[in-house]
């Protein structure tokens, strides 16, 4: 039979962290772990279909065999997985992938039907990035227009008195420049990924604003149909190992972007201490509690927190 070529759908550009952190290791796992030559071929920049929001459906329908996406883009499918994204759900320094896999079998698996979960990981912690505004207390956010990625961040910004704005990421650069938005809440990697370091003037770290989460899934039928050898090669790396690698690369990209911001003359980084962060964290606790109650996620939260 012909050697199997698995298609990995990547909607980000080929230079994105995901390539080195996840696609390349998966490809070498197949290349090195099989003799009949199963291989992984990545299609970058949305070559197999544009929007990241459709990634899960794309895998289920077999347009691609494998691909990564954000639960937050189709939040209704992932109510419990998204608990990891909530402000304060996890301490900032605690890895997201470990929390996700802790809760996966018992609580989260049902949110991933018809696929095999390959990787689940978290991004670096969310921070506030502003143009010409300094945010040191929740009061400083009052009335400011803040770009948010999803409904959880929207509620968090409302709880802090800001006005949440939905805007495609490619329009954020111009939006900051014209004043359409005063700032955004996201991980530090967007500073380099979307060149926002050219327009952001202050950054606030410290408060627990949650983090984004990601998944990589494989079509269930394709996974079950892999040769024993190929499946063994994949199983070796799938789950926590590849998730850990990906998350660490993510955090490294973010750390680098934040370091560059610190050393840049045009950006001021304010690292709030525990006392200054507490005002934010207290205001956000209600958002987190309300969300968990709404989705009936008490058990999932406990599992995520390792209790």
């Amino acid at each position: 039979t012909e050697a199997q070529e698995l298609k990995y759908a990547n909607w980000a550009p080929p230079f994105h962290t995901i390539t080195e952190a996840q696609i390349d290791p998966l490809a070498s796992a197949f290349a090195e772990g099989t003799t009949e030559g199963a291989s992984l071929r990545a299609f970058h920049g949305g070559e197999l279909g544009a929007g990241p929001a459709d990634q899960y459906v794309r895998i289920v329908q077999g347009t691609a065999d494998m691909g990564w996406g954000l639960p937050g883009y189709t939040s209704s499918q992932f109510p419990k997985t998204l608990i990891v994204e909530l402000p304060g759900a996890l301490p900032l320094e605690e890895p997201g992938y470990a929390a996700l896999w802790r809760a996966f079998d018992a609580e989260l698996k049902s949110e991933f039907p018809m696929t095999e979960a390959i990787a689940l990981w978290g991004a670096e912690p969310n921070i506030l990035m502003m143009k010409e505004r300094e945010v040191l207390s929740p009061g400083d956010l009052s009335g400011l227009k803040i770009r948010v990625a999803g409904s959880i961040a929207a509620e968090a910004m409302e709880a802090l008195g800001a006005t949440p704005v939905q805007l495609p990421m490619t329009q954020v650069y111009n939006g900051l420049q014209t004043g359409l938005i005063d700032g955004l809440v996201s991980g530090a990697s967007v500073l380099s990924d979307f060149k926002l370091n050219e327009v952001v003037s202050t950054v606030t770290t410290g408060p627990n604003l949650g983090r984004l989460t990601f998944y990589t899934v494989m079509n269930k039928g394709v996974y079950d149909g892999l040769s024993d050898e190929a499946r063994a090669a994949l199983d070796e790396i799938k789950g926590e190992p590849i998730s850990k690698m990906t998350e660490e690369a993510w955090v490294a990209t973010a750390d680098k972007a934040l370091e560059e911001a610190r050393s840049s003359d045009s950006i001021t980084v304010n690292d709030l201490d525990a006392a200054a962060s507490k005002a934010f964290d207290d205001a956000l606790a209600e958002v987190t509690d309300a969300y968990v109650a709404e989705v009936g996620g008490e058990a999932a939260l406990a599992a995520i927190q390792g209790q």
Binding site: K7, L48, G49, A50, G51, A53, D54, V57, R58, Q61, G62, T63, A64, P168, Q171
Partner: peptide
């Protein structure tokens, strides 16, 4: 190049995605 399943999947996802594209 990629099978009927991929073709129908793309036909569905690209038409709906473009029709609901916020830009």
């Amino acid at each position: 190049l990629n099978g009927l399943q991929a073709a129908t999947g793309l036909l569905a996802s690209e038409t709906f995605a473009l029709a609901s594209n916020s830009e």
